[in-house]
Design a protein around this nucleic acid. Structure first.
Lengths: 347, 347
DNA sequence: CACCATTTCGAAACCGGTTTCGAAATTAAT
DNA sequence: ATTAATTTCGAAACCGGTTTCGAAATGGTG
């Protein structure tokens, strides 16, 4: 052990110290902190008082060791996309998740494929750390390590996915796509393209399905070249995708993007060509990130209730950890079309 | 203990199991995993092999209990602003911080003022969890709990601040303001306002100082009404602040916003009044968040090297945890003016 | 082959809690 | 005042590792 660490060890007071000072046994001290009924009121207050005097703080590691409960929830999101925590959608969801989880006594820890500086699987990481549960955000379904996690028996709640094995919370993506397309259709648009988020994510897949379903519903013809698949939900890929669409001999008059960031990139691409949104192309996004209200043109989009997604996920996960109810819960939250300035009737 | 938890306890294999199976003692097994030199190669491989066979994974809690090293780093950011993790700047910094920290064997855990569902101080939370160090992002200097943390002896690295007591990493905020103002000045602007991030944050304070310093340097008169103090670095407060400036009898021709989000909000406010950026007002931001390239007009801004901020912070903190060198390190990273489309010479 | 130096290993104590179960102390009942 | 019922408490084992220090095994040497 390095000298620095050694030196820094501020020996904290333990229940043994309290026991010695009060004259009671460590057992009794422990019972006080765990609200056991078999300790007399007088001794309870005495122990509590000296605990406060001595600045006692429980040692979470010691407690976890015996109780097998770490009061820690792992956060897992796909690192591959590079978007990670930087995507405003995730940030918002994590924040609301955190708020609920913390209020219930849990702390959040990032779970990655490295542990102790070595490569590992998610499950290994979780078991080593002894997390009580895991919240998974934007998983790519095809990751075997992720599947292994679902099978591991560790309580999981997945956002934007819906495996049979684990709890899940997601928005009604298909309905969102329908609403977007119906709206564009109502404005007279008939050539509507889709910037997909990619089929390797649940959300991307669902929204694309919804897009295709809407085409059928509205009697529009499906055109393969009108679906551009961006792998990530990033502005950059939205930008590239839109450029592809604009280069088409017969470009669409409207575009439904599977994410707001994609939409922002797309808008930029339109503008870079000297064209105008919504003048030349109407664009609808998905997510309603905070930013969308403030850009020009303000983005018409499908709002997800991110705060609720996070809090519902937290409720589900914590109760899954604490209750014996084994039924897998699968919640789908409604979405909402937010009309702003990025769409216009065809002329 | 709830039945569910009890039931789920997948008794993991321990070093004792390995000891029993191989015939060696737990001591020797432990030595193998800790690379002690006094174990013969033959027994090392045998232990390692059966460990793999049995699916052994170390128990981090048990290890932490004896070694007093949790290999956990606490992340702390001010929750008060509501911005929290949602701000793209933080997200980016945390991500690069995480990358380095994880590669060195640390995991990241959020530190809040709640622990175990009860109100607590940051220090208490840290001690209970036994984190090895803490990274603080955008602290508001006036929080006493935060000061207590700095005094606690727990290794800390602070971003966007520069206390004497702890390591710190920040951008050269003052230089950034100077560059922004000089640039606007070079375009002929003489009435330049400042949307401040607020004086209760280090970055906000520094940037405002830089603004005032630049005014003097450039021989411009300081006008109190040209500084609008927004409390948070949010689009909304940027929007409000800009509205205030535009309502002035003598509105500025250029605005230097202390953050990109503030700038985005400001741009929106200008546009909502039927005015144009940069036609009627030139705007410079600060941060260069990814978004800034994609909005219209693309934002001219002062780039912070977020990735480097995060990685340098991680390097400093981990070495502060591991080395005996007690000198407090204070790193200031250069900034860079990124010229895009949100400014124009005065006509 | 005896002797000494190295290697290699393990017993035991410890880290800071929790929990079972029985004993002691107190109260209630007769 | 006994006895029975209840409270209140603590000894001890355990959770899964780490580390010290001494003993045993091995190797080398004369």
């Amino acid at each position: 052990m390095p000298a620095k660490v050694q030196e820094l060890i501020l020996r904290l007071t333990t229940i043994y110290d309290i026991a010695k000072k009060t004259g009671y046994s460590p057992t009794t001290v422990s019972k006080v902190f765990n609200n056991y009924p078999d300790v007399r009121e007088k001794t309870r207050v005495k122990i509590l008082e000296t605990a406060k005097e001595m600045g006692y703080l429980p040692n979470a590691n010691a407690r976890s060791l015996t109780t097998k409960r770490s009061w820690t929830i792992g956060i897992l999101f796909v690192e591959a996309t590079g978007a990670g925590i930087r995507h405003p959608y995730f940030g918002a969801v994590i924040e609301s998740f955190k708020k609920i989880a913390v209020s219930k006594g849990y702390d959040l820890m990032f779970i990655s494929k490295d542990v102790g500086g070595l490569r590992s699987s998610y499950v290994e990481h979780c078991k080593i750390r002894g997390v009580d549960g895991v919240v998974v955000i934007l998983s790519s379904n095809d990751d075997p390590d992720f599947q292994e996690l679902l099978d591991s028996g560790i309580p999981c709640v997945i956002l934007d996915s819906s495996p049979e094995k684990a709890h899940s919370v997601c928005s009604d993506n298909i309905e969102g796509s329908l609403q977007a397309l119906r709206y564009l259709h109502s404005l007279g648009h008939r050539s509507i393209a889709h910037i997909s988020g990619g089929l390797n994510t649940f959300a991307g897949d669902q929204r694309q399905q919804g897009y295709e379903q809407a085409l059928r519903e509205l009697g529009l013809t499906f055109r393969k070249e009108y679906i551009t698949s961006s792998d990530f939900f990033s502005m950059e890929s939205g930008y590239d995708a839109m450029n592809g669409l604009l280069a088409l001999p017969d470009p669409p008059t409207a575009v439904f993007a599977a994410g707001d960031l994609l939409a922002l990139g797309a808008i930029r691409a339109v503008q870079d060509r000297g064209l105008n949104v919504p003048g030349d192309v109407s664009i609808v996004g998905f997510d309603d990130i905070e930013m969308s209200r403030y850009i020009t043109p303000a983005l018409t989009t499908i709002r997800q209730h991110t705060e609720q997604l996070g809090s519902v996920a937290a409720e589900i996960l914590t109760s899954s950890i604490e209750e014996q109810d084994t039924a897998v819960k699968s919640v789908m939250l409604p979405v909402e079309l937010i009309i702003r300035d990025s769409c216009r009737p065809v002329t």
